[in-house]
Each structure stands twice: as C-alpha cells, then as structure tokens.
C-alpha cells in the first residue's frame, strides 16, 4: 500500500470529506510525527508502535571499496518499535 492508496481508502469511507481534505489529514499525521522526531521527541501510538530518536556515537568508519578510514560524525537516527497488538496481528494472534 502506498500513500495515495491509503488516502483513497479513507476517502471512500468518508464520502462527506473532499479528497483534498483527506490528503491534508493523512499528510498532517505523518508530518507531525516527523516534526516531533526532528525536535527530539517520541511519538507513542499504543497498539501500533512508537517512533523515537536514537543517538549514534561518532566512529571511525571504513570505505568498503578502498579500505580507507573515514571519520563518521555522531548523529541521531529515527527508530520504530512495533507495538504489541500489531506484532500479534502480524502473526495471526489478534
């Protein structure tokens, strides 16, 4: 499923809303999650999962082609942990 299919499904279920409105709603949900993470916050959606930010220390990496050592700066990366209910559903348990 891609973004436009998700929008279509929700639009079909909500005939009183315009396509534009549904797009705005779906975009707002995903944009807000990114915005929260960009500010270093967590987003916890019970039953679905939690988005958080993990810190990665600086390290000396290696160019796999040349074998040359390169300094990799410390950085922050987004992380998603699947919620319990969703994990169970994936395995046919809920």
């Amino acid at each position: 499923m891609i973004r436009s299919e998700l929008i279509q499904k929700i639009a079909d279920e909500n005939p009183h809303l315009t396509q534009k409105h549904v797009e705005k709603i779906v975009n707002t949900v995903f944009d807000e999650i990114i915005e929260a993470l960009a500010q270093g916050n967590r987003v916890e959606l019970r039953g679905f999962g939690a988005f958080s930010v993990k810190a990665r220390d600086a390290r000396v990496g290696r160019n796999p082609r040349t074998g040359e050592a390169v300094q990799v700066e410390d950085k922050k990366v987004p992380f998603f942990k699947t919620g319990k209910l969703l994990r169970d559903r994936l395995n046919g348990k809920a």
Partner: peptide, 28 residues
C-alpha cells in the same frame, strides 16, 4: 479528527497484517 487519526493507523495496520508492504512517500 481523533477518529480519522485512528483510521490512518488502522489502515496501515490492516495492510501489514495482510502481509503488504506499506510505503509512505517522504515518510518511510
């Protein structure tokens, strides 16, 4: 607004439970 947010999460979960990959452009 609350029920639409729930609906977004529900549809993503349903697709995953059905074994589909969910690709949200510019999100992940």
């Amino acid at each position: 607004s609350a029920s639409l947010v729930e609906s977004v999460l529900q549809h993503v979960s349903d697709a995953l439970a059905a074994g589909e990959t969910v690709k949200i452009s510019s999100f992940g």
